[in-house]
Nucleic acid binder design. Structure first.
Lengths: 339, 339
DNA sequence: TGAAAAGGTGTAATGGATTGCACAGCATAT
DNA sequence: ATATGCTGTGCAATCCATTACACCTTTTCA
């Protein structure tokens, strides 16, 4: 039933040579003659040889596997990044192994341990919302393994990263709203202890300042990045003494929930209220009205993260490497009044 | 810089015993005294011991890693299933390693090779659309490794699987449309060489027959499962001598594209035309009108697949195990005329 | 022509955990 | 007292690929 796997020893025996020669031939060692290499390659094929990656990883001290940690794999942003990483990694003969932190620090630490035990070549991670302490990530670096951050980074950590310019994405969005005639622009922020949401808030503020639009601190509120959070956020904002006429959301999901609610109480979007979201999730374009949103270049982000990772492997970590992708505001109907 | 990893030998030395005893103690071998086990456990903790999974995998001939192959990780259905698998697998101390087939047989074969070389414990897969020949999957079974299929299966393969009852999902949908007064129900099918789409078609037909609603073969067309395919599909159907008054789609995405187009030429949904999709993708509920759709129980599917997988590991593969989840039609506005 | 350099291959150790077999110590049974 | 059995450990081989070092052969060049 179970097949006997063929090893380099089998090839060696068949060729009347030794395992070392076979190993060298397969690894294209310069001191092996072309003739030998050819013979070995052919015999390997004939015997259906498959290298045992465990054995080589054990010897080498690391595998050709990249560990990835994300909060949840089934969030489209993360799964897109993973796609980008996987495709780039594969070009270099690397595999990806995936863990979910569930936005919990404790789970993230456990994940790091698991990946380290699995002898991954290094880790690419988007840290959880809870992550303040980063000693578990320092451990990765201490082992001399590449650590690359994406999207969510930490100031406590010197590591290469790929992010989008959240500040700029927010800035563009708010300027766009202003240009389209909205004057009382509120911001529904994400968890402000996370840097990306902080940056978006700052971009929002700067845009207002630069265009002499008044900034009401009371129009800035923090809300979870999910659909359910949309309605209460809106309700709170609409009952302020002066109600906003536009909302810039840090999350498409919160925006969705908000729009649903606004429509249910008969507000016209975009004519009475303008909306811009963040993330350019697939849902936004099919929504009615289609939602303006900032695209996060997710696949590209993954691709870039994997490139940096491979670069670290080859030339050592350049912890100052910070790739910042330019976000792109996708303008759709929700922020373009007909008048 | 690089840390010296502590091995069982280090623990043995510190305890003045041997590696074998340590190994057995850590693995809870019955012949080791509790006292020794405690001492070993304590010393392991003290020295910060992390087992080297490569070494143990090499010795054991398999790792605690489950290989997953899906067409694309960034399709919400697949990423949800992966989430389900990952969470269940983790409970058993297993990791998942992910490959994408890009719907190509050649890539799928390559993926299988990669995973086998990585010494995975087994593979959980949703086969690509192109996959007819399954010899690469037979190889997995020949090695005595569990192979579990989900969603898309193959009649050529004797392997445990988890699917939803596509036939029933379609049947429910069409009955629902009929009950809501639609009489001329068309079906936009997916690639009919894939069994799930075939089954949905059959469910559609059966529902019509059971309710004495006429079946027009010309109202059944095949289209890719993406947004772009929606419009041409609709155009083709609407110019038939007798135009349909409802559409049952094998894919939410095709449905989305179709609805967009229908609305742009001023058809009222659901009053003039009823729509039901398949997949219950997240987008459907936020669409306007909200789309009725068949829920595929994706996370549950992953969870179930992982359970079966673990079961195969423990008790050997039961190739006849076919878990069929009951789909659930989620009724929303797109199929409920106000009249 | 002799010596140094380059080319080609084998020997044996290495990485870390696992496990069949052997054996020592002690207890119970006869 | 001898046999039988159980408990608790150690020895050494094993999984497979890699590689430092050594050795022999051939080429190159003063």
């Amino acid at each position: 039933m179970k097949q006997q796997k063929t090893t380099i020893h089998d090839i060696a025996k068949a060729l009347n040579t030794t395992a070392s020669t076979v190993s060298r031939a397969l690894n294209n060692h310069p001191r092996i003659s072309q003739k030998t290499k050819d013979k070995v390659a052919e015999m390997a094929r004939k015997l259906g040889y498959e290298p045992n990656t465990m054995a080589s990883s054990l010897r080498l001290g690391h595998s050709k596997i990249i560990g990835i940690i994300v909060p949840y794999v089934d969030r489209i942003f993360f799964s897109s990044v993973i796609r980008g990483i996987e495709e780039q990694a594969r070009k270099h003969g690397y595999n990806v192994i995936i863990c979910q932190s569930h936005e919990k620090l404790s789970k993230e630490i456990e994940d790091v341990n698991t990946l380290l035990a699995a002898q991954v070549a290094g880790i690419i991670i988007s840290i959880s919302k809870e992550t303040r302490d980063v000693t578990h990530l320092l451990r990765v670096q201490e082992k001399g393994k590449p650590l690359v951050l994406f999207d969510r980074t930490s100031a406590l950590l010197k590591a290469p990263s790929v992010t989008i310019n959240d500040f700029d994405g927010a800035y563009q969005s708010v300027v766009h709203l202003i240009k389209n005639g909205y004057q009382r622009i509120a911001h529904i922020a994400g968890d402000l202890s996370v840097s990306i949401f902080k940056d978006r808030l700052e971009g929002y503020k700067k845009a207002l300042r630069d265009h002499q639009v008044e900034l009401h601190e009371e129009w800035i509120i923090e809300a979870p990045s999910d659909v359910a959070a949309g309605r209460p956020a809106i309700e709170k904002l609409m009952q302020k003494p002066v109600a906003p006429d536009a909302f810039f959301f840090s999350s498409d999901f919160t925006a969705l929930g908000a729009v649903k609610h606004l429509q249910s109480i008969n507000f016209k979007i975009p004519d009475q209220i303008g909306i811009v979201g963040f993330g350019n999730d697939q849902v936004t374009q099919y929504f009615n009205p289609a939602l303006s949103s900032v695209d996060q270049k997710s696949i590209q982000m993954g691709d870039e993260a994997a490139r940096i990772f491979m670069d670290c492997l080859q030339h050592g970590s350049d912890t100052t490497k910070q790739v910042v992708l330019a976000p792109k505001l996708i303008v759709r109907k929700s922020s373009c009044p007909s008048a």
